[in-house]
Design a binder for these strands. Structure first.
Length: 460
RNA sequence: GGCCUGGUGGCGGAGUGGUGACGCAGCGGACUGCAAAUCCGCGCACCCGAGUUCGAUUCUCGGCCAGGCCUCCA
C-alpha cells in the first residue's frame, strides 16, 4: 500500500519510503513517569500505534523497530520522590507499570524497544563530549550548553528564524549563555538530587539530550520517522535535531517528522500544568478501552480533539454498530481475509482514520444485507480491516455484555429466559413486565428470529 | 510582540474547483404482539467581505472568531 505522511519539516505530505525496508525505524517521545497518563498523553500512543501496525503490515513485523523512550530523570520525579520520602526508582517504576497497563487497555502494542534515560547515561555523556569536541557545545559555570550558532539551520523545523525568535523571546536568559537560544546539555545537581559523574563535573542531563542519545543507541541516524505531540516541535525536537546532527556530523536526523494535535478539555488544551486532566487510569474503569481508542482516532490525528462525554458515547455507539453486525453474522464461518482496499487507501493517506471508519461502516452495512455466499468474505474483510488498527478483537457477545459481572449476567439470562417463556405463551403483559425489570438493570433485549439477545446500555 | 493552525448540517467529523462522505440524533416506511435491533427512504452545512473563474465550501487577499507554540507539557 502507498503511505503518505505529513512531514513537519517540509510542511507537506510526502510518500513514505524507508531508507531500508528491512529495518524501518520509528522513534516516539514517551512518558516522563511521575504520575498517571492523561487522555492527551494517550493520543500519540494510539496514533503511533496505528502507524506502527501499518508499517508492520507493509514491511513485515520483524522489519520495523519502534522505540519509545521512558524519561526517568526529571525535576518533577525528584519533587515527587522528595514529597513521599522515597527514592526516584520507587516513583518511576510505579508509574511506568501503570502506564504499561493503561496503554495496553487502549489496545496499543508495546514498542519494540523502550530505552530508559537512566540506562543511557554513558551514551549521553559520550554525545556531549563529542559536541564539545565538534565545537558545538561549551562549558560555563558547571553547565554544558549547546551552541546554537554552530548549527546554521537552527529554527528550521519549527519555522522560527533565529533573529525573530530572539526579538519575541520572553525567556529569562541565563547570564552564562553565549546566545539566548543556547540550551542546557548537562547541569549540576542540587544537593539531594540524583547525579552522575562526568568529565564535565557531576550532574545530570538536560531535557533534550536523552532522546538524541537513545536514538543513536537504539536506532542510529537517520531514523525514518520521529513522532510526538505538536508541542514538542519547539523547543524539544528542534534542539534534538540540532544536537543530534552536530554530534555526528550527520545530514539528516529524521526523514519524516510526524506530530499529533492536542486533546482539548472544554475549550482549552488538556495539560497537567492546567490541572484539567482526564486520567486514562480512571477512565478505563468505566469505559471500554476500545471505545476510548475509537474516540481518540475519530478525528484526524493532526486536528485538535475535544474530549467530551458525548464523544465517548458516540464511540461506544459506533462500536455497537460494528459489533452488532458481527453478532448478527455469528453463524458465518470465519475466513482468513485481507483488509478492504478503500480502507487501506484511507489510512495510507496520512492516516485518515475518519475516512477509514466510514469504510468500516460501509463494510458492516454490506454484511447486513449480503446473501449467504457473500457474507463470509465480507465478514473476514471487516474483521481484517478493523483488526489492522486494533478494533473488533473482542467477541461480540462480550462487547454487548459490557462489564457485567457473572452474578449479574446470570440474573439477566434468567430474566431473558423467563420472558421468552412468557412470549411463547403469548403472555404479553408478563413479557413486558420482565422487559421493564431488565431495563431497570440497564439491559435492553432484542427479539430476533433465533431468540432474544441482550445488551447493557449506557455506563455507570 | 513573533510564529502557526483551524472555522463544514442539531452534534461529532472527512473531503472536494461543478453529483453521495460517514457516524450520532431527527422524520417517514418495512419488520415486530409492542419495542429494540436491522432494512428502505427523507431532510439539514460549508464564518463574513472582496477577488480569480463559465462556476468556489474548496484557490487568493482582507476581516472577524477560536485555539496552539515562543516556559515544564503529548
Amino acid at each position: 500500500m502507498v503511505l503518505r505522511l505529513h512531514d513537519t519539516l517540509t510542511r507537506r505530505k510526502r510518500e513514505f519510503i524507508p531508507s531500508d525496508p528491512r529495518r524501518v525505524t520509528m522513534y516516539v517521545c514517551g512518558p516522563t513517569v511521575y504520575n498517571y497518563a492523561h487522555i492527551g498523553n494517550a493520543r500519540p500512543v494510539v496514533v503511533f500505534d496505528v502507524l506502527f501496525r501499518l508499517l508492520r503490515k507493509t514491511y513485515g513485523p520483524e522489519n520495523v523497530v519502534y522505540a519509545r523512550n521512558v524519561t526517568d530523570v526529571d525535576d518533577k520525579i525528584n519533587t515527587k520522590a522528595a514529597e513521599e520520602g522515597v527514592g526516584i526508582e520507587v516513583i518511576t517504576s510505579r508509574y511506568l507499570e501503570a502506564y504499561h497497563q493503561d496503554m495496553a487497555r487502549l489496545g496499543a502494542l508495546p514498542p519494540t524497544v523502550e530505552p530508559h534515560a537512566t540506562a543511557a547515561m554513558a551514551g549521553i555523556i559520550a554525545m556531549i563530549g563529542r559536541l564539545i569536541d565538534n565545537r558545538a557545545a561549551y562549558q560555563a559555570e558547571g553547565h554544558v550548553l549547546f551552541d546554537t550558532a554552530a548549527y546554521p539551520d537552527y529554527g528550521k523545523l519549527s519555522g522560527r528564524p533565529m533573529d525573530e525568535m530572539i526579538a519575541g523571546a520572553r525567556v529569562d536568559v541565563a547570564p552564562y549563555k553565549k546566545h539566548p537560544a543556547d540550551f542546557v546539555l548537562w547541569k549540576p545537581s542540587k544537593p539531594g538530587e540524583p547525579e552522575w559523574p562526568s568529565p564535565f563535573g557531576p550532574g545530570r542531563p538536560g531535557w533534550h539530550i536523552e532522546c538524541s542519545a537513545m536514538i543513536e543507541e537504539t536506532l542510529g541516524l537517520p531514523i525514518d520517522i520521529h513522532g510526538g505531540g505538536h508541542d514538542l516541535i519547539f523547543p524539544h525536537h528542534e534542539n534534538e535535531m540540532a544536537q543530534g546532527l552536530c554530534a555526528d556530523h550527520a545530514e539528516v536526523y529524521a526523514r519524516y517528522w510526524v506530530h499529533n494535535g492536542f486533546v482539548n478539555f472544554g475549550s482549552e488544551k488538556m495539560s497537567k500544568s492546567l490541572g484539567n486532566v482526564q486520567l486514562v487510569h480512571d477512565l478505563v474503569e468505566r469505559v471500554p478501552g476500545e471505545a476510548i481508542r475509537w474516540a481518540l482516532l475519530s478525528a484526524h490525528y493532526r486536528q485538535p480533539l475535544a474530549w467530551t462525554e458525548e464523544l465517548i458515547d458516540q464511540a461506544e455507539k459506533a462500536l455497537d454498530r460494528l459489533y452488532g453486525a458481527l453478532r448478527r453474522a455469528a453463524d458465518v464461518p470465519p475466513a482468513a481475509g485481507e483488509p478492504n482496499p478503500e480502507f487501506l487507501a484511507a489510512l495510507g493517506d496520512d492516516l485518515n482514520t475518519p475516512k477509514a471508519y466510514a469504510e468500516l461502516f460501509a463494510l458492516a452495512g454490506r454484511l447486513e444485507t449480503a446473501n449467504a455466499d457473500e457474507r463470509p468474505g465480507l465478514k473476514s474483510e471487516l474483521l481484517a480491516s478493523a483488526r489492522l488498527i486494533g478494533f473488533l478483537e473482542a467477541d461480540p457477545e462480550a462487547w454487548f455484555q459490557g462489564m457485567a459481572d457473572p452474578a449479574l449476567k446470570a440474573r439477566i439470562e434468567s430474566l431473558v429466559a423467563a420472558r421468552s417463556t412468557a412470549r411463547a405463551a403469548k403472555d404479553w403483559p408478563r413479557a413486558d413486565v420482565i422487559r421493564d425489570e431488565l431495563a431497570a438493570l440497564d439491559v435492553e433485549v432484542m427479539d430476533g428470529p433465533q431468540g432474544a439477545t441482550w445488551r447493557i446500555r449506557g455506563r455507570g
